[in-house]
């Protein structure tokens, strides 16, 4: 049960790893992405991504600005102008 998660900024590929869940601050509300999520695209507002490595684990927080999220069969990709 892992979700492939990639965080990309114009300067580099920040993260590319398998995680349990990611909570994304979408423009129309936060949403969590688990493995097997339906294909989905959303703009992301400036805020904090929460990355859960395992079920019940403490989330890691990553600040993103100017973002866009895409969920496809291959996992979740977040494009952000600034991250970290």
């Amino acid at each position: 049960m892992t979700l492939h998660f990639e965080l990309v900024t114009p300067e580099r590929l920040v993260l590319s790893e398998d995680v349990y869940m990611v909570v994304v601050p979408g423009t129309e509300g936060e949403f969590g992405v688990l493995e097997g999520h339906a294909p989905f695209m959303s703009t992301v507002k400036d805020g904090t991504l929460k990355v859960y490595d395992r079920d019940g684990a403490e989330p890691r927080a990553i600040h993103v600005e100017g973002g866009f999220a895409e969920v496809s069969e291959s996992g979740l990709t977040v494009l952000a102008e600034r991250a970290g």
Binding site: G26, T27, A38, F40, M41, S42, T43, E73
Partner: peptide, 15 residues
């Protein structure tokens, strides 16, 4: 398009 129904939030134009 891959054929899979993709959901958009807000909508296509806004994105």
């Amino acid at each position: 398009s891959t054929g899979a129904a993709v959901e958009y939030e807000p909508d296509e134009e806004a994105i």
